[in-house]
Amino acid sequence: MKKSLITLLIALLSLLLHAPILAEARKEVSPQEASTHPFHLTQALIARTESGQTVRGTGTNLGKGAFLTAAHNLTDEQGQLRSGQTVETYNAQGKEVFHTGTSATPYHLAPSYSGYEDLKNDLALIQVDSSLGLPTDKQELKLAIYPQPQKLLGKTVSTMGFSSLTRQPYTQATGKIIRVEADGTLTADLGLVQENSGSPVFLDGQIMGIITAVTEECRGQSICHQATITPLTQDLKKQVLDKLGLEVRIVN
């Protein structure tokens, strides 16, 4: 089934009118919950270029100086990093958590990533240059690879992410994996909204992938009831995750 990427550019204010529908697909992360593990590690991402272009998404501070997000939050349509880009992240209270700065090569993508249509490789790490209040020396979250994706069908997964389009910007959703696609990505009946790209997907308390796209039936909509998950794989481990020494569990 064809996919289309979640639109990441800031939408028109009129799209806020869709916010009441959100209750059917996602629910608010309460202020109390937002400060607890692992919710406090997921943050709103804002990438800015020299030309003034702004892209919004979501990502997760994994520890060990690594921030996990979708590759397309950081690149152009052909998969090339945007020139002169800087990234800032914010927590649910609107406080800046980290920013890129002095590191010469803060972004780590799969060398095979070819752009927006390459969903199976749509994963990136940002090397944290300045962290405000979060540890960078140890891995806070567990990562898991499921080599046999067909065994994931029917499994319940959860996610949390940020969007400027919702009246409460930090929301969460739970759903089941309903398809394994030909490219190896997964489809789940998870409610999502624009700017959720890069949100972590949890199974049994471990991150097994990230949200990267919506399905074809959701094209042009700001809110959707199905999401595409880019799962962690052995290839992504070798190409991306190993660059910062992240520990990953293989679940057979």
Rank of each mutant, 00 (worst) to 15 (best):
D183E: 11
F67I: 05
Q32F: 14
G245K: 07
V248I: 12
Q85G: 05
L143V: 04
L8N: 13
V180S: 05
D204C: 03
I145Y: 08
T166V: 05
E216A: 12
L17Q: 03
T159S: 15
L246W: 03
H37K: 09
L246Y: 03
A124W: 03
K3I: 03
L244I: 01
A188N: 10
Q80I: 02
A23M: 06
R167M: 11
E24D: 13
S35N: 08
T102V: 10
L246H: 05
R56E: 11
E140W: 03
L141T: 01
L8F: 00
I207Q: 09
A23Y: 02
K237L: 12
A34K: 06
T42V: 14
I207N: 08
E217V: 03
T42G: 07
L123S: 06
I145V: 14
L153D: 12
R167H: 04
H37L: 04
E181L: 15
Q194V: 10
K151F: 05
G57V: 00
A44P: 01
T58R: 06
E217C: 02
T171F: 02
Q194K: 04
R249L: 15
E216V: 04
R249F: 11
A92R: 08
E77M: 03
L8D: 07
Q85V: 09
S199P: 01
S114V: 01
L125V: 02
I207E: 11
T187Q: 12
K95N: 12
G220D: 05
D242L: 10
E181K: 09
V251M: 10
C224I: 09
T156F: 11
G220P: 06
H108L: 15
A25M: 11
Q206V: 02
S131Y: 01
F98I: 07
Q172L: 13
I145S: 13
H40Y: 12
H18K: 09
H18E: 14
G65L: 10
G209R: 08
P20C: 12
T166P: 00
P38C: 08
T58E: 10
Q32T: 15
